[in-house]
């Protein structure tokens, strides 16, 4: 269903051309930083200093990528960012899985097994994912310390699950809202119980929303900086924190090519997900802002 005003008589050729030119100019605007990042990451430092930022490398080199991955100095250690990349993965996988599972169960309860007060509970959970997280930094650092989770990946998983379930619950709730109640009733009469209905009837039909939720959570958790910077120090820091440390460290020569290579490495996982499953990514964005 396109809503374009479809005049049978073609609108002027001039306008069509103008529209295309405008759209292409903006495409260039969005692509330029990525392009610059990419070409810079394949240049030597000398070429960067002498050449044009926008020019393709005269001599392509993957040395910056190798250095970023394995030997660049982040803080005091010079082992590249691969360890932090690993930290991010170790943090992302459990956070995403746990929060998605909890969200699915919550959405199921909040739509198919309603009880008095369900709207309040949902509202309170939903508000939790919009708060400025500065408000929880002080007590969270204390609680993590108390549990012995300060500076650990496990601590970050706890944090991301906690502040992720609001959104995952929202996604599944809206999805299951449209799931026919009669199916649940039919299964109930057929003798299936609470969990059986969930596993056998709802979950098999939840493919799209599971993908949406996983992508949303993956992107959010991978891209997080505030929690990582606050609760994971030194060697256990996630990728974004390491990247920021690498780029803003003031010691030594600024290796812009290595910085850009590291930025690309940090961007690749989410970029890849976006390219492979963009449709679901957009659906998640929409569901996270325009409800109903």
């Amino acid at each position: 269903m396109a809503s374009a005003v479809d005049t049978g008589v073609q609108s002027g050729r001039f306008w069509r051309v103008l529209i295309y030119v405008t759209l292409i100019v903006f495409a260039a605007f969005y692509l330029l930083p990525l392009f610059v990042m990419l070409v810079t990451s394949f240049k030597s430092l000398d070429e960067i200093r002498q050449g044009n930022m926008l020019a393709l490398p005269l001599e392509w080199t993957i040395a910056p990528w190798i250095s970023a991955w394995g030997s660049a100095c982040v803080g005091l250690t010079c082992e590249g960012i691969h360890g932090y990349f690993g930290n991010s993965i170790k943090m992302v996988v459990p956070s995403v899985l746990i929060s998605t599972l909890l969200g699915a169960l919550n959405g199921y309860v909040l739509t198919k097994w309603r009880f008095p007060g369900h709207r309040w509970i949902f509202g309170l959970m939903l508000f939790g994912c919009f708060i400025p997280f500065q408000i929880v930094l002080i007590p969270m650092s204390q609680v993590l310390g108390l549990f012995g989770l300060a500076g650990t990946t496990a601590g970050l998983v706890l944090v991301h699950v906690t502040y992720g379930i609001g959104f995952t619950t929202l996604f599944f709730r809206n999805y299951y809202e449209a799931f026919p109640n009669e199916l649940v009733r039919a299964a109930m009469i057929d003798g299936a119980g609470f969990f059986r209905i969930f596993w056998r009837i709802l979950l098999p039909s939840s493919g799209p929303i599971i993908v949406v939720t996983i992508i949303w959570q993956f992107t959010n958790v991978w891209n997080d900086f505030l929690f990582g910077a606050s609760f994971a120090a030194g060697q256990s820091a996630p990728m974004t924190v390491a990247l920021n440390n690498l780029v803003s460290s003031s010691t030594g020569v600024k290796e812009y090519n290595v910085h850009m290579a590291a930025a690309m490495i940090a961007a690749l996982p989410t970029l890849l997900v976006y390219i492979l499953a963009g449709r679901y990514f957009v659906r998640g964005l929409m569901a996270g802002s325009v409800k109903g």
Partner: peptide, 8 residues
């Protein structure tokens, strides 16, 4: 696509 990137 920029929306998929980290602000960092």
């Amino acid at each position: 696509y920029p929306m998929a990137l980290s602000f960092i």
